[in-house]
């Protein structure tokens, strides 16, 4: 049961909600969600300018790796855009909070779930912002496995050619995909070089250092020049020892004992004051 008294976006609460929701729903994709929890925390605590999910001039966010949606739901709940009933109804019959995000949910701009599409939606949104002389920005979070998709590179080429500096991509580089490690399935290493070769401004960062993520994004030139990509080095299953780097935790749900251990490990990582 998710119940946060003083809702505010933080890495701890996002991870905690990922575990709680995933356990109650007995579902997987936990490793993928923990992989992006710190990135989501950075975006929703101090990056995205969204006065209301219905504001047409809000920043847009596309979770192109839609299978990690529970991390996003956690942030939307902590922002107050989805209710306690909704978050606690995650995956239940009749819930709109499914495995992948749906735009009918308050705070979700684009439905995703099929990899390789989100960046094209985001590039269109960034182009629209420029045409409308708006300073709003567009952020797209993709996975490293998603970079297997040819369609993603169509959008990469387009955004660079049109110098969509208001578009920022974050690549969740955890080195894993559904059935194996990315360098064994389709090796794109070093991924930063690939994006660089396509004429993007590339920033290699620690994808679990929320302060650094925020600082890097705030330092970007969004007025002119090339689009920006943060190659965020992450760990699939971050902060849960038995999940980290394990392929199994792309899909696997937790047992009761595993859930208890995961909770203890996550809580052990953070100061008591924020728990």
């Amino acid at each position: 049961m998710v119940q946060v008294k003083n809702r505010h976006v933080s890495s701890y609460w996002i991870k905690r909600i990922i575990l709680d929701c995933s356990k109650r729903a007995n579902t997987g994709h936990i490793g993928s969600a923990l992989s992006i929890a710190d990135i989501i925390a950075a975006l929703y605590s101090d990056v995205l300018k969204i006065s209301s999910p219905k504001d047409p001039d809000r920043d847009r966010f596309v979770l192109s790796k839609g299978h990690a949606a529970v991390a996003l739901y956690a942030a939307l709940y902590l922002k107050g855009w989805i209710s306690e009933d909704e978050i606690n109804n995650y995956h239940n019959d009749g819930s709109t909070l499914g495995v992948h995000p749906d735009h009918k949910v308050s705070g979700i701009d684009f439905s995703t779930g099929s990899l390789g599409m989100g960046l094209s939606f985001g590039a269109g949104a960034a182009l629209a912002a420029r045409l409308q002389n708006s300073s709003r920005r567009v952020f797209v979070l993709v996975s490293d496995g998603e970079c297997n998709e040819g369609s993603l590179w169509e959008s990469v080429i387009f955004a660079a050619h049109h110098k969509l500096s208001n578009l920022t991509v974050i690549v969740d580089l955890n080195g894993q995909q559904a059935l194996g490690y990315t360098d064994e399935v389709l090796n794109l290493s070093p991924l930063a070089n690939r994006w660089n070769a396509f004429d993007w401004n590339v920033y290699d960062i620690d994808g679990h250092d929320t302060s650094k993520i925020i600082e890097t994004i705030k330092s970007l030139n969004t007025q002119t020049g090339q689009p920006n990509v943060l190659i965020a080095h992450t760990v699939c299953g971050k902060d849960v020892s038995f999940m980290e780097h394990r392929i199994k935790w792309h899909y696997w749900p937790m047992s009761d004992a595993e859930y208890q251990q995961a909770l203890e490990e996550i809580e052990g990582k953070y100061e008591k004051s924020i728990l």
């Binding site: 701009d109 599409m117 939606f121 590039a123 269109g124 045409l131 169509e154 387009f158």
Partner: peptide, 19 residues
């Protein structure tokens, strides 16, 4: 350019913004 998938994705993003 010769990129039909991206074209439809771009159109989706443009339409969401009112085009």
């Amino acid at each position: 350019g010769v990129a039909e998938q991206n074209m439809v994705g771009l159109a989706t993003g443009l339409a969401e913004a009112g085009y």
